[in-house]
């Protein structure tokens, strides 16, 4: 039986893993390659590296870091932030990443999803989406898409965008709730479920995980295929195997971490 995936997210800034609350107040946590290796050895199912400043600084992704990760990590990992075009995607994939994640770029130029899927296969293209609750009229799902690390509102409906991205060839959608991000109060279950029910590709829930029970909830009630965690593991509050044990105890199929 296909297992639910536990994914650790490493936000990278100036070559260090960093973590902010609601995209602000960042603190440095360590070396991305070493941290990735440690999570891999602990039995995490997948890793995501976001170069969080690449877009804002208008520079390419740190490809040397991607290569270094590929030498140390033998599970799938995806890379996002700073992908500007098809050539950047190719470089990241050739460096050893399994998937590339596009966010702001895809909103500005949705056709990049189609191009990427055609060139490398749908399974390589992850749409990262930052969404926030809204009462703007016309956004029927009640969630609005943001870009540039949650700084810029786009006036686009989150569910409509998810459907469009999948139609273009996105192989997976990572749904990040700006409201829940960094709060450790649990995932945004409504948003996750809305997207999971709207598309036929796997959905990764992101933002708000603080305890293993939050993952149980997002798998059971949010319809997620994978859960992204950061703070709850970066600060050593929970280990990978402890989280998996709790998921298994709740009846959720997980990969043995030992």
């Amino acid at each position: 039986m296909l297992t639910k995936r536990l994914i650790v997210c490493l936000d990278v800034r100036n070559g260090k893993v960093t973590k902010g609350v609601k995209f602000k107040e960042n603190v440095d946590l360590g070396d991305p390659v070493e941290m990735g290796r440690k999570y891999y050895q602990d039995g995490v199912d997948e890793l995501v590296f976001y170069d969080i400043m690449a877009s804002a600084e208008k520079r390419p992704i740190d490809i040397a870091m991607v290569r270094a990760v590929a030498r140390k990590v033998f599970i799938p990992f995806s890379v996002g932030g700073g992908i500007r075009n098809l050539e950047d995607m190719r470089e990241v994939l050739l460096a050893g990443a399994e998937k590339v994640s596009v966010n702001s770029l895809a909103v500005q130029n949705p056709d990049i999803i189609r191009q990427g899927a055609k060139a490398f296969g749908k399974q390589c293209i992850v749409l990262g989406m930052d969404a926030k609750k809204t009462d703007l009229p016309g956004l029927s799902s009640g969630y609005e898409v943001f870009v540039q690390g949650g700084r810029k509102a786009m006036g686009i409906d989150a569910v409509a965008w998810a459907k469009q991205a999948v139609a273009l060839g996105a192989g997976e959608i990572c749904v990040n709730s700006i409201d829940a991000d960094g709060t450790k109060n649990g995932y945004e279950l409504t948003l996750t479920r809305l997207i999971a029910e709207a598309v036929e590709v796997p959905v990764i829930a992101s933002g708000g995980a603080g305890t293993p029970s939050h993952l149980v909830d997002v798998f059971k009630k949010g319809g997620a295929d994978a859960g992204l965690v950061a703070s709850m593991v970066h600060y050593g509050t929970y280990g990978i195997s402890a989280i998996k044990a709790e998921l298994a105890a709740a009846g959720i199929p997980v990969r043995a971490s030992a």
């Binding site: 296909l2 995936r5 749908k122 295929d225 994978a226």
Partner: peptide
């Protein structure tokens, strides 16, 4: 064949 509990591609960790 895709089904609600079997999204295609089959992607992830399986026994």
């Amino acid at each position: 064949t895709a089904a609600p509990d079997a999204k295609v591609p089959h992607m992830g960790w399986n026994q």
